[in-house]
Amino acid sequence: MSTQIPTRPGRARGAAATAPSAPPRRIGFRQTLGRWDVKISPYLYISPFFIVFAITGLFPLLYTGFVSVHEWDLLGGQGDFVGLENFTTVLDQAFFWKALRNTISIFLLSSVPQVLMALMLAALLHANLRARTFWRMGVLLPYVVAPVAVTLVFSKMFADDSGMINAILGQVGMDPIAWHSDPFWSHVAIASMVNFRWTGYNTLIFLAAMQAIPQDLYEAAVIDGASRIRQFFSVTIPMVRPTIIFVVITSTIGGLQIYDEPRMFDNFGQGGNDRQWLTVTLYLYELGWRNTNLGRAAAVAWLLFLVIVIFAIGNYLITRRIAAEPTLRTTRGAKRVAGRSAR
């Protein structure tokens, strides 16, 4: 008969406490590779864009800045370091300020109506129309046409003596317009070319944003008694605010860099006899390739870059501030109406 010796609880606990712990589990190579894949793969997916941008965008921008602080001839190449002399020389030129005024004028006459027309066309295409695919493709067709072809056709339409526009004005008893000699009307003609080509493109961008709006907001607005116009201004516009900001910024960048339309508006490509539609890009082309002064042309390019940055930041801040409050009010109102209808 065996005798069982009782074990003290305290001693057992002490023995368990002093028992050696299990060795740490080793992480396999596949698990390590999987962790690194989760961390690094997103950066690898977006890296091609930044690599291409660094080669085709950032490097030319920095190299242009290097050229702008040197005497640089198109044929002779790099000269002496001159610092900011090219910038001060350009800023003292009356042609630069005239080109800047013309560029801003054409930009305002093209970008503002373009965004407004694109919003209205997108709202119409978003409605229940027959053959919606046909109409959506139709608004994009002008964007497919080459800019040079559009400019050649419009330049003939806006001809001073034998243009179609002046012929139509004469038929209704109005005096012909000097599209090429008058500064304002030449800007209107060039802006109409830009609007014809880019309005459809921006329309499809707005249309894609409108299709992503939840239908619950429209249903809540209908329950609240809002009309179609009220829904457009109180639901649609605030909900597409990020898209509006994007379109405004891209239109600003493209509008201030306009070149094809004023270059092909006449047969000489110099911005008119009195430089009445000379733009900054045309002035840059004249300095660099006609006067062979790449240093001053690079200075003009950097000044234009700074102007674009200032306008883009200003448009972003203004657009964001205007649309922020309506978005908040619309969201709160829609939630209240949805809550009442659920009860």
Results as ranks from 00 to 15, higher is better:
R230C: 06
I190H: 07
R228K: 12
N195V: 15
W179Q: 06
N202H: 14
V235L: 08
F206D: 01
L204Q: 03
A226S: 14
N195Y: 09
A220T: 03
T203F: 01
M239R: 09
G200R: 04
I237S: 06
A221N: 04
F196P: 07
A226C: 11
I237Q: 05
D182W: 07
T203E: 01
F233P: 01
F206R: 00
A178Q: 13
F232K: 00
Q211P: 05
I190K: 04
Y201E: 04
S227Y: 07
F232C: 09
A189C: 08
G200K: 02
F233E: 01
A226D: 10
Y218G: 08
I190E: 02
F206Q: 00
Y201P: 05
R197F: 01
I223L: 14
M239I: 02
G200M: 06
V235C: 11
L207P: 10
G225R: 03
Y218N: 10
F233Y: 14
W198T: 10
R197Q: 15
F184I: 12
N202W: 06
D216K: 12
V194L: 11
M210N: 10
S234P: 02
D182C: 13
I190F: 07
I190A: 09
Y218I: 05
M193Q: 13
G225E: 08
V194H: 12
A212C: 03
A226W: 02
A220E: 02
A189M: 04
D216F: 01
A208Y: 06
S192N: 11
N202D: 12
M210K: 11
I213T: 13
I223N: 08
S227R: 09
P214T: 07
T203N: 00
D216C: 03
D216P: 07
F184G: 09
F184N: 10
D216Q: 13
V240C: 09
S186P: 02
Q211N: 11
D224K: 05
G200C: 09
S181G: 15
S227W: 05
D182H: 13
A212H: 03
M239W: 05
L207Y: 13
H180A: 14
W179P: 11
F232N: 07
A212S: 15
R197V: 10
Y218A: 05
D216T: 14
V235K: 02
T236I: 11
S192R: 03
P238L: 07
L217G: 00
S234I: 00
F184C: 10
N202Q: 14
I237P: 08
I205Q: 02
Q215L: 12
H187A: 15
T203C: 00
A191M: 00
F232W: 12
N202L: 06
D216E: 15
L217V: 06
W179N: 05
G200T: 04
S192P: 07
L217A: 13
R230I: 02
F184W: 14
T199M: 04
S234R: 10
A208T: 08
F196S: 11
M239Q: 14
I190Y: 07
Q211M: 14
V222S: 12
T203D: 00
A178H: 09
W185L: 01
W185E: 01
V222P: 00
L217N: 06
A209W: 00
F196T: 10
R228N: 07
M193G: 15
Q215S: 13
F232D: 02
T203H: 00
